[in-house]
């Protein structure tokens, strides 16, 4: 190949690739609206809060950003909003060993930020992040009644048992030793703040997706508490 031929291949080849990129870009931009919910004023205001506090300096979102703190793409799917709001306002009051400092967001800003995070969690990301293999394998396993409820209400999103689960709430590996009283657990599950002041954990009622009869609630609370005291 002569130098001139190489030069022409470089110039025209690159222009051709760039033209294809522009066509794909136009097509992609046309398809974005159907892959995400509508952007309300609140969501846009939340995005501005995200930029204002340079959240990307520690977190990733859609998997891009800094790698110092958890990815924020599907956060609102797994963490209750009440918890997120309290955490954002003052992380260490909720989780004393948290690496996140108090950044000085107002209540209003925290609400908008959560609206933005809810929007991002509904974006069609081609199934990313994938479901962890272990979480899928546990789902079909038979277990005692309380353990099934523990999975059903996604307690594992915030609590760990023997290293598996979220780190937003306290580790429950030895909770049976620390709190051996079933009645304490029932009371705590029903209304966490009645036994732990300022607790960020949602009430049991708030986790229910369907209306349950009172007897059913009593039964589930008892089963969950029975499971928790077996953790030793």
């Amino acid at each position: 190949m002569s130098t001139n031929a190489a030069k022409n291949l470089f110039i025209f080849g690159s222009l051709l690739c760039f033209a294809v990129l522009i066509i794909l870009t136009i097509d992609t931009i046309g398809k974005l609206d159907e892959r995400a919910p509508e952007i309300t004023e609140e969501v846009n205001a939340g995005k501005k809060v995200w930029h204002k506090y340079d959240c990307i300096g520690c977190h990733t979102i859609l998997g891009n950003g800094s790698y110092f703190a958890p990815d924020m793409t599907k956060t609102t799917d797994r963490k209750p909003k009440e918890y997120l709001k309290k955490f954002i306002l003052d992380p260490r009051s909720i989780k004393p060993d948290s690496a996140m400092p108090k950044l000085g967001l107002s209540e209003d800003e925290a609400g908008k930020l959560i609206a933005f995070l809810e929007w991002i969690s509904k974006v069609d990301t081609n199934d990313w992040p994938p479901q962890p293999i272990l979480a899928l394998s546990i789902a079909g396993r038979t277990a005692i009644a309380g353990q099934v409820l523990f999975q059903k209400y996604d307690c594992v999103a915030c609590h760990q048992i023997r290293g598996i689960g979220g780190a937003a709430g306290p580790d429950l590996t030895y909770i049976g030793l620390k709190r051996p009283d079933i009645q304490w657990h029932i009371k705590h599950l029903r209304n966490p703040e009645s036994v732990i002041p300022d607790s960020a954990m949602p009430r049991f009622d708030d986790l229910l997706e369907d209306e349950l009869r009172d007897e059913q609630i009593e039964k589930e609370l008892k089963e969950l508490a029975e499971f928790l005291i077996t953790l030793k």
């Binding site: 703190a69 990815d71 690496a99 992040p129 293999i133 272990l134 760990q160 290293g163 598996i164 780190a167």
Partner: peptide, 9 residues
């Protein structure tokens, strides 16, 4: 990603 442990842990 594969086992489902928490990022912070």
């Amino acid at each position: 990603r594969l086992l489902g442990l928490d990022y912070v842990t």
